[in-house]
Design a protein around this nucleic acid. Sequence first.
RNA 1: GGGCGCGUAGCUCAGUUGGUUAGAGCGCUACCAUGACACGGUAGAGGUCCCGGGUUCGAGUCCCGUCGUGCCCACCA
Length: 851
Amino acid sequence: MANIPDKPTLDGIEERWVAQWDSDGTYRFDTSVPRDGVFSIDTPPPTVSGSLHMGHVFSYTHTDTIARYQRMRGKAVFYPMGWDDNGLPTERRVQNYYGVRCDPSQHYTEGFEPPFRGDPPKNHHAIPISRPNFLELCDELVELDEQVFEGLLKRLGLSVDWNHQYATIDERSRRASQRAFLRNIARGEAYSQEAPTLWDVDFRTAVAQAEMEDRERPGAYHKIPFARTDGDGTVDIDTTRPELLAACVALVAHPDDERYQSLFGTTVTVPLYGQQVEVRAHELAQPDKGTGIAMICTFGDTTDVTWWRELNLPMRAIVGRDGRFHADAPDGVDADAYAHIAGLSSKQAQKVVVDQLTAAGLLIGEPRPIQHPVKFYERGDRPLEIVTSRQWYIRNGGRDADLRAALVARGGEVTWHPGHMQHRYDNWVEGLNGDWLVSRQRFFGVPIPIWYPLDEQGEPRYDEPILPDESELPIDPSSDTPAGYVDDQRDQPGGFTGDPDVFDTWATSSLTPQIAGGWEEDGDLFERVFPMDMRPQGHDIIRTWLFATMTRSHHEFGCAPWSHAALSGWILDPDRKKMSKSKGNVVTPVDLFESYGTDAVRYWAASGRPGVDTAFSEDQMKVGRKLANKLLNVTKFVLQFGAPTDDRSLDDAVTDPIDRSMLAKLDGVIADATAAFEAFDYARALERTEAFFWWFCDNYVELVKGRTYDEQRPERANSAKRALREALSAVQRLFAPILPFASEEAWSWWNDSSVHLAPWPAPSSDASTPFGDPALADVTIEVLTQVRRAKTEAKRSQRSVVEVLVVTAPLAMHVAIHAGRDDLVDAGSIRNLEIVDGETVTTRVTLADDD
RNA sequence: GGGCGCGUAGCUCAGUUGGUUAGAGCGCUACCAUGACACGGUAGAGGUCCCGGGUUCGAGUCCCGUCGUGCCCACCA
């Protein structure tokens, strides 16, 4: 305390304060505080297999400002950190880092040493290793990555309580994930089903609706004639997927379509393959598309699935899980014709079929190229196929209007920041067309905790799954044995088999409030933090993370998992395009922390309003650095006068109307900043505080500086000193959530404990009896500005002396000018001041000659 | 096709129930070493608030429409 450096500097303060906060436990969550004194945050777990990028810096800063504000308001802030290490990105990173690949057929090797730790040579062939060995390497690498991330996030100044950490693949998460799922099953909210499923043929896994995206791809309409069975000519259809003719099970047209009325119920013959299919009517058929009549295949797209299901059509599946056409022809299909496409990929098959059609004269005209949206897995490179497979689902309203309505209503229980983001949630939930597919055919993930009995033929009895007891969790059904069986019975007729699949990563990350809050593990903690106060996240994952979390909480607890959802925007390149990964990595966050200081980078982040896409701007960081620097310097200035010795109240000690005016203005700023933070609008709070701060430094401080130095009149000097310290204290605390390092540094020069544990500033007066007139000082400042202008225009120093200043002002303002008269004379170096009556505030400045 | 944003100074953006002369920062220009700060300070130039209607005494702000732009969703024959 009272340890003011001669030359304040921002350099090195991050390292110093991070260490101090760590050792002081400044951000430790007080586990004894009851729920209503807690502010809990459902922190997004970053994917640790990537690198920290500007998007993290941006959105984590936003959350941190709210956390710090709430802490200063006296809340016990539960601010945990999670690591998302569950899923494909980790799987890939482990492969690339160690030069291995997971091969479930391999046996576990005790003490396995990977061939490389980092950067295997390009020509290295990945070594196949067992699933347990692979998972061990995952754990090892994830641990390393997490340490790096923790260091970076501390450097960013996050006020996380590092005692509360979890990883989405750790034992606690696996247990929570399996437990929640078993309860979903018990209540009928989860079920397995053999059904057509969107399938990525490269990843060999099923894909959920939330993970799909449309991409515009070139295609072509092929017009193909189907011979009417009654011999009365042909029915021409348009298709972009002629290779699926063998999978055709019906034709369909709209029930009201005049052209096809007479055809409904009749049959036609599929060209090349000869199967007879019926012409059916369905509302989804669009008369204006193609010829208005379409072929239904099993399956070309999701509409086919709907038609197939609703019209009770037969199945002629031809595409396998590897993306290749089955070896054998489906029922009713000419085997010789089918042999031409057996074993081919869709793309190869299309070429063959088109050639055959052309040769047979069955292609009407040329194919007409079009651009059309095609469904892809968001990580995939080839269009999704639809294959039939057994999968697990969790009900999410996609097939149940009541549940859907209930989930939309849950969305209404959450306050959205910004509010319009709720539309995206509603939009998504209302557009669901199926339940949530949670099983994935991957290795690294939380295993689905299910076994199946095998019948005498060795076939699983899926309708009688064997479930573990909750007390056994987490389990891995591929290595653990269910109660009542011995391990020798695994995969034997009459024995059992483990479900080979793992959960979708969202099935686990949808439980972050439960995992972080200690659900069923630490009941005392859980009661204090759940439902949580805040879910911060990107708006791009409303349909996945946010909705999934809502769904799980709805099923398990019958409530929304949080009361506020804060959606952050994107980082854009300076040219307003979405910032690409490659560009974002050119300048790393750490480089920026070192160039401008962390506070400066946070200043840039906090100037991006909630939910608004924000341009990356080093210029803004420069401004932030300037601001942080100014905060240190003005603190030094104010504190150099020493602590006032009188013990009078602020109201008694601050006697000068200019000082009281400043404090009244400050009260307004505190009220605005508080209201803004209450509405999660850190950007507005910053803006208000910053505007006041520059006004304070440039005008108020300059105006009262002379008086503060004036030892001849201690009463007047004391008023200024008290007002300066009062304002400084408030400003440091107002900035603390945004600029935690500079605020702490400046605060530490005259306080013993952390600014981050100091109470959020309160107005020094209430609205009914204001401290003063906030506008009063501005009259004097306006006159001072005009004097400065005169000096600038005369190209003279601001210190040059004004021989005579004549101020013209309306009579009503004379009181204000008289109030600031002495300060004005001092700040403007004015020898003679006259005040006369007039319409507006104008000045006539007569400068003294240079000496 | 449905939904949601955004369009204010060269740039990035404020502008909270409609209320005098539309603001800030950056950038630009000129000037100043003044006792907290040269990682400083002072001032200046710069705007048909996308366009067109309407409501109103009064519209950047409210209503209708057009245009531009971005995102989300959608059954893709």
